[in-house]
Design a protein around this nucleic acid. Structure first.
Lengths: 157, 157
DNA sequence: TATTGTTATACTCTATAACTATA
DNA sequence: TATAGTTATAGAGTATAACAATA
């Protein structure tokens, strides 16, 4: 790469940022999420997890005793995708499926001791990463943003 | 569905929202984006577009005269994906590829008259949809959120 | 030697339908 | 008749490598 290539790329980006998409909230939301998701997946890869499997493990580790149907409903993933995610966590000994005493069709997903440890390790990494990632906002701004996101995330419930 | 099923689902969701993921900014960002993306794609389907192809059309319609390399760089999509998106828009007569006079390897993507019309129609729909989607926030909150997102969206440039 | 656009390919993700066992 | 979990499969999206033309 010659020494002007970086500058040329930066100029092109500047020109495109000044178009209407630079103010489009949906576009910005998608981009901000893509940046956040990519770095979170990088962090979680060290623990053998991705954002998807980490989310399942977090819900199970919180002793919420979700059925697979509840996980599917909450995470907005198809039941068949939940099967694959729970299979993966179960193969590593981090969760087990228990029969739901109130509905013999349903299976409650429960964390194991090893799963609790794995979650604790991953959670520490994720927290540190998020503090760093969102450090361009101050504490008040993060609180406001969290409130906005909580409202937007629950729009269609 | 019997008349208690909806309540059972809502209870399960409430229980899961109270876990740590309910305050996790990265999780909330992902969920808020998923909700926004899904509804935007529904709106754009009426014009034969998706968020991806709409973004390309918007950048081209702004007379930014991007090369495919610049589109790839800005949208963070692989050059081979840009090829497919531009092919699609070109097949519908909305954009054309012009040789870049300053670099014979590069192709500048330019909007046609029909493309300008298509973009205008799609843009009106998207604007109306976004006003409605983000109406749970007031004008000040939207301005703040836009500022936050602009900063987060450009973290790794 | 490095870069742009292109093609090909494999891989992951997502959506859908069908099946079983239960309700 | 409807629901929970499972399996299979097809489609969309994504990542990677290789190539020709050009820098």
């Amino acid at each position: 790469m010659d020494d002007t290539t970086g500058q040329v790329q930066a100029d092109g980006r500047q020109r495109l940022w000044r178009t209407s998409v630079g103010d489009d909230l949906a576009f910005l939301l998608a981009r901000a999420n893509a940046v956040s998701l990519a770095s979170a997946n990088r962090i979680l890869a060290d623990e053998g997890l991705k954002v998807r499997s980490y989310s399942v493990l977090a819900l199970v580790a919180a002793e919420a005793r979700p059925t697979q149907r509840e996980l599917s409903d909450f995470l907005r993933l198809d039941p068949s995708q939940i099967v694959a995610l729970v299979d993966d966590l179960q193969d590593r000994g981090w969760v087990i499926r228990e029969p739901d005493p109130t509905d013999r069709r349903a299976k409650v997903v429960v964390v194991t001791a090893a799963g609790r440890d794995a979650y604790a390790r991953a959670h520490r990494r994720v927290e540190a990463h998020e503090r760093e990632h969102f450090a361009i906002l101050d504490d008040d701004e993060i609180a406001q943003l969290t409130s906005f996101m909580q409202r937007l995330a629950r729009i269609d419930e």
